[in-house]
Structure formats: C-alpha cells, structure tokens
C-alpha cells in the first residue's frame, strides 16, 4: 500500500538561550507497506518530533520524507494522526467529528455520515453519535479519534503515544481494537510510545531513538495476536531486555552481557 521513506532527516530549533538543538539528527528509515513500526525511546529523544515531520505539520530542516516515492508536502488525510492529548473537536457532535475529514474532501453528506456511522459502530460507539464530546469518557474520546482517522482511509497511520493517558484496562482494550482495524485495512503504521510492553504487543518492528538518532532497529517475528504466553517466550524476553537497557533500566535485566 504505502512505503514511507526518510532520508537523512534532521530537525533543529533554537533554544531561548540561543543554543542550537538537534531534535532529530540524520535519521534514515524505510517503513515497508503494511508494516507496524513502533518508535520507542526516552522522553525528549525526538520521537514525537519525527512523527510530526512525517505528518507534515512541521517541515524538516534537512533531508527528505516520501511516501511511495513522492515527497510529502504538508499534512494530508492519507497520513492520519492520532494525538496524545484530546484532539477531538469539543464543539462538534461525535458523528460530525468522525466525518470531518470526509467533509473537508467534499464527500457528500449522506455518504459521509454513512461511512462515519460504520466506523463508529466498529469502535463500539454506535449509540453515542449525537453526543457532545464532553459527555464521553477519556477512553471513548480515543475511540472517536481512532474512528476519525480510519474513516479517512489513510494509507499511513501515525500515532503519537495515543493511549498514554488511559487506564490499564482501557488501554489494553484499545490495543485489541487497533489491531482489529489494522488487520482489516492494513495501513502502514508508525506508532510512537515509551511503553516497552505496548511496543512488544503491537509491533512488527521496533525502532529505538536516543538523542535524535536511531540507535536500534529490530524485527519482532512473534506470531500475531500475541498473548500473555507468547510474550513470555525467550525470544520476546530477549527483545524486551535489550529495549529496557536502551531506556537506561539495565538494573531490571539479569543478563547484562548480551550486546546492545
């Protein structure tokens, strides 16, 4: 479907003191079609900045980002983004939120309502389409945001720590929901997180960033719809140990001799 390529991408900004800060430094990365990639790293490592660059919200200071060989120019609904904070428009009813992207593209009203309704039902919110966002819980708002991006049938799905603020159970429910939708529509996914377990559960491939650079890139070949059992297999544990050590949590790991 869509291959995302980053070539020597860099992003600088000037701190208030005047010092130049490299948020993203010389990142080259190819994300294959339909791949589910998790981008992990300690806070401030540049992963959110990188995601914003791929979304096209900020132009990169350096390098090139392309989707299927075409350089990106600004944001586009074909690269849907789910934010960490609540981005759902509080002044639109649920159904109007979900159909907003379609409306922007000029999809005719009955058609777009029909599509939005279908996705709302898929995320389990069929009965609140006329509600105001203020009447929904945090988890429900996230479902609305997920339904909204999928309604735009994006080729690339970008997620910026989307479930970080949710409680444990809601988060696990949304993981399953996301996997179901992904299996159905197969967008290419770039998912930013700082949660190793979340990454292990979701990703085909985990990319680790530190101080603006990619320091590790590993394939996770565990069979899909991972379970508590499959995540306890030696292969999974080995991945997790390396990832934790990347995050500076080496004391949690027994075998500290394996190379990073």
């Amino acid at each position: 479907m869509a291959e995302v390529e980053l070539r020597n991408v860099g992003q600088f900004f000037r701190r208030s003191g005047g010092a130049l800060v490299e948020a993203v430094a010389d990142v080259s990365l190819v994300i294959r079609s339909h791949e589910f990639v998790c981008l992990i790293g300690p806070s401030g490592c540049g992963k959110t900045t990188l995601l914003q660059l791929v979304a096209g919200l900020t132009p990169a200071s350096q390098g090139q980002i392309s989707v299927d060989g075409a350089a990106i120019a600004g944001p586009s609904p074909e690269r849907g983004l789910v934010f960490q904070r609540d981005s759902v428009f509080p002044w639109m009813r649920t159904i109007d939120n979900v159909s907003y992207g379609l409306k922007c593209r000029g999809v005719e009203k009955t058609k777009r309502i029909e599509i939005a309704r279908q996705y709302l039902r898929q995320v389990g919110l069929g009965d609140v389409e006329r509600s105001w966002p203020r009447e929904l819980s945090g988890g429900m708002l996230k479902r609305v945001a997920v339904a909204t991006v999928f309604a735009n049938s994006p080729r690339v799905l970008l997620m910026d720590e989307p479930f970080a603020a949710l409680d444990y159970v809601t988060k696990l429910q949304l993981h399953q929901l996301l996997l179901t939708l992904w299996e159905q529509h197969r967008p290419t996914v770039l998912f930013v997180t700082h949660d190793v377990d979340e990454a292990m559960l979701l990703a085909d491939r985990i990319v680790v960033m530190k101080e603006g650079r990619v320091v590790d890139d590993r394939k996770i070949t565990l069979a899909r719809r991972r379970t508590v059992e499959s995540l306890a297999l030696p292969e999974a544990v080995a991945h997790k140990e390396v990832l934790l050590r990347h995050l500076g949590l080496g004391e949690l790991v027994q075998d500290r001799t394996a190379p990073l």
């Binding site: 983004l81 981005s87 922007c104």
Partner: peptide, 26 residues
C-alpha cells in the same frame, strides 16, 4: 492541537477558519 488535527485531516485554511477557529474562539 485542534488546528493540527484539522490539518492532518486535509482541511484547507478556509475550512480551518470555519470549522475550528470560529467555534473554538467563541
């Protein structure tokens, strides 16, 4: 965040004014 959200969904400048800025500033 609301402006960015609209932009990632393909809203034009005019559409952002109409559907985001006007209601959000009210």
């Amino acid at each position: 965040i609301h402006v960015d959200y609209a932009r990632t969904q393909g809203a034009s400048r005019i559409q952002i004014y109409r559907s985001v800025i006007l209601p959000a500033m009210f």
